[in-house]
């Protein structure tokens, strides 16, 4: 069954690594929904969070193929693991003085923050699951969304995840 699946991927922070991962997904016809990449606490290690539409078989192929990339350090399909998943969105919404209290009330309900106020617009910042952001967007739409930007998902599993703790794992193995 095709569903949205989330992969955490630790990669060496070297030039071209994003290209290598993206190229793999393109040439194997794996369907990327979102891909997020950024630094980690470890020097030289970046973490990607890749959301794909895939079935169980394809997920295994994605993991196996990622491991074939020399710059890939660890891969985990965290779809079925308890985890914290967040997108970040910035939304510029139309709101003059009259509409502003209603918009602010919506923001409060969603625990979203107003980070910029202009004459007739607000910029709202929200972190949350994709569904939560979609919910906020739906409520703000009547006020006129002028611009919007959203990251892909980033995710960490809950509790300890040894597989993705490269440094500790390496030092344990060395000991």
């Amino acid at each position: 069954m095709t569903e949205l699946r989330t992969f955490a991927v630790l990669v060496e922070d070297v030039p071209g690594v994003l290209n290598r991962v993206a190229s793999l997904f393109r040439r194997r016809d794996f369907n990327i929904v979102s891909l997020n990449v950024g630094r980690t606490h470890e020097v030289g290690v970046s973490r990607m969070t890749v959301v794909v539409a895939a079935d169980e078989r394809t997920s295994k192929l994605i993991e196996a193929n990622l491991y074939k990339l020399v710059n890939v350090l660890a891969v985990e399909d965290i779809t079925s693991r308890p985890s914290v998943t967040r997108d970040l969105a910035l939304i510029r919404v139309g709101a003059d003085a009259e509409q502003r209290p209603a918009v602010l009330q919506i923001c409060e309900l969603f625990r979203a923050k107003v980070v910029d106020v202009a004459h007739d617009t607000l910029i709202i910042e929200i972190a949350g699951t994709t569904e939560k952001i979609e919910g906020l967007v739906a409520l703000l739409r009547p006020y006129g969304i002028r611009e919007m930007v959203q990251t892909g998902a980033i995710a960490l599993t809950r509790g300890a995840d040894e597989k993705m703790q490269l440094h500790e794992k390496a030092s344990r193995e060395a000991a």
């Binding site: 078989r57 295994k60 192929l61 196996a64 491991y67």
Partner: peptide, 11 residues
């Protein structure tokens, strides 16, 4: 040898 070949074409 290559896990990426498992279930690629034939289950």
């Amino acid at each position: 040898l290559d896990p990426a070949e498992i279930d690629k074409n034939v289950r």
